[in-house]
Design a protein around this nucleic acid. Sequence first.
DNA 1: GTAGATTGTTGTCAATGACAACATTCTCCC
DNA 2: GGGAGAATGTTGTCATTGACAACAATCTAC
Lengths: 168, 168
Amino acid sequence: MTRRRPVASTAKTGLRRRAASPARAEKLNKLTLGQLDYHLGYVLRRLQIWVFQDFIQTLATMKVRPAQYSVLLVIEANPGRSQAAIGQTLGIERARLARLLHELERRKWISRRASGSDARSHCLHLTADGEKALVRIKSLAAQHEARLADHVGAKRRTQLMELLRDFG
Amino acid sequence: MTRRRPVASTAKTGLRRRAASPARAEKLNKLTLGQLDYHLGYVLRRLQIWVFQDFIQTLATMKVRPAQYSVLLVIEANPGRSQAAIGQTLGIERARLARLLHELERRKWISRRASGSDARSHCLHLTADGEKALVRIKSLAAQHEARLADHVGAKRRTQLMELLRDFG
DNA sequence: GTAGATTGTTGTCAATGACAACATTCTCCC
DNA sequence: GGGAGAATGTTGTCATTGACAACAATCTAC
């Protein structure tokens, strides 16, 4: 459907919106959020989007996504565990984790050894390459975390961590 | 690629994992998050996922998604504004907002009137149906918010709101 | 030893975010 | 008055993500 709309009489009124120079427009168009900023979920999500975007951008050189990073850290902290255990810990669904690990294996950052105790499951480990890569990745992640602290304020960041860490 | 893996000697060791009764398994498989819970982004995201899932489930009867809800609230609080203004306020991209509004219009919850001052843009308003629906929607959203307060604790919820509201 | 659960894999679908292209219209500047 | 360039809304496409179903292999429980 193409746009067909009556021609507006442009000289109708003097209340025309102001000139839209690129910087000016942003300010003039700011609207009220209404009841939205009484919803914790909304403000939570806005910050979370900021965090993810900065994280993705910061780790773009290593081409590591947040989910991949979390998996690498959990494997490092719990070597030899199964996909089911990792997925359960991180809340990542089986199917998605299988594909995610396939990619990490393709990059030779992790290995899947056969488990001696359960022939269905794989034991996950970081490879030497994976450990080396993770050093650089952690360094970038630290840069991101510093930028985040700068964005929200160091004190506020600490308070948020304390409030959020231990109730899941 | 199908699975082909060496047959495991099942009697190899006594260290076999315990029986996996559905409740038991969840506890036994809990792993360490490693350095992950020093990342604000991670704990933030976990809570945000909880919030969204509860929201979506609570508003399933009205078939309203979080983004749709936010748009309805902002239109209510700022009637007659353009799509560009709404999108800018909520951080929703032009293309996505156009399709989202198309759906809300199909349900007769919003109307797009031609703007007298700018023939390119539409003035967005809630319809009578939209306002009626929004009453029910807000009631469900309040239920969700109460459940959220119960989940994180009323005091913690307040503290989080204060920390998150005013720095974007 | 069999019934039912678990593990990992693949396929598919819907929602989302991002980007490009486009017609229409506006603003700016000469 | 008349472009040049920007803004608005629309559509198309692509990649990512989450969710679910089906499947073979294997394990647990009885």
